[in-house]
Design a protein around this nucleic acid. Sequence first.
DNA 1: AGCGTGCGGCTAACACTGTTAGCAATACCT
DNA 2: AGGTATTGCTAACAGTGTTAGCCGCACGCT
Lengths: 197, 197
Amino acid sequence: MDPEEATTSDAPAPSSDPPVIPERTARVDAIVARARVLVEDAGWEALSTRILADDLGIRAPSLYKHLSGKEELRTLLLTDAFIEIGTRCWEAVRSAAVEGEESAVGALLTEYRSSASGSAELYRLATTGPLDRSALPPGLEEWAGTPFFEATGDPVRAQALWAAAHGLAILEVDGRFPPGSDLDAAWQALAHAFDAG
Amino acid sequence: MDPEEATTSDAPAPSSDPPVIPERTARVDAIVARARVLVEDAGWEALSTRILADDLGIRAPSLYKHLSGKEELRTLLLTDAFIEIGTRCWEAVRSAAVEGEESAVGALLTEYRSSASGSAELYRLATTGPLDRSALPPGLEEWAGTPFFEATGDPVRAQALWAAAHGLAILEVDGRFPPGSDLDAAWQALAHAFDAG
DNA sequence: AGCGTGCGGCTAACACTGTTAGCAATACCT
DNA sequence: AGGTATTGCTAACAGTGTTAGCCGCACGCT
């Protein structure tokens, strides 16, 4: 059951279903699938068109029969990542609402963290660097961010919490915390900071 | 930059002076200076060794008489960025302590944000992707993170605040917030969340 | 059946990238 | 003056994303 209280907003309540994404050819699906494996294995930077093509048993220029370029491949991967992370975050806030007990912020952060570190390279790809909004399925960004609004009840705090979570996540993924840091505690501190507020 | 356990231990109280960094040749200084201009202008990704060399009036291979490779150049730029941001953060918490009035967290975040967006490309270069710790001047990271400890009084909260600030900063620099977002308010929300505790 | 059309592969090639090898000139120290 | 280190150079290599153009094969249409 979705919380329909629509706090002070008359906008249509966002659905927990992700927005429809453009159809993909079977071959494109296959390419993206292989690319994803390679990215999660060695990172986006290490993925070259020739390596990907080799992996698919074709030559690099043939990729351009299916994709406009590497940038489109990045967009496709990034779209999938958004949908997966978003789905998990939606579920986190929903089950927190149902079970009623644990704080929604805590549940959300736990899920966000696990999504990020669970597919670290894909998370980095999806969240690092400038973003070509016009290439994204419309509504995806907003949909993926809505759980943070659900958990905080306020758009400003939602953005702040999302950004803070991203900070923790990306620094963890990038191994930027000094060795020996208690990251569990840091995440907990973040949850606590946004719980009382 | 990372908040690490510090005061209240028997370790020497960290100085507000940055750690000494290895000497640089005059020519290296010149190269780094030009590289910095080009990076801040078009980003690290757009900087090629040939472009940099052209700008200096030499050929690309000559750069290797001064630098071991592009990675070292990145380390040098990154080191400068850490020192500058760290210096500004140290000053922020110091003057907040002197004037006593404003919250140290708020002052620190304000300065951190302005450091990041003031030299956005350099900030991105310094904070994005994996970090080769062994190439950094020892103590730099800890020194740059200490202001967050000073502002929060707790190592765990310091790390969480630093990471959260980075999240806000990098998303802002990357233009990742949806257009029309009230970023001033988001930063304020973060400060507020970490003020009370 | 024949024919056209387009899909999806191919090779060759271009303009880049970071980087190495090896040569030459200049400056400096003994 | 002689030797050495410094700092430039050209040529070259392997790798990148990408384009142009060719070729075979499956399909639908008349």
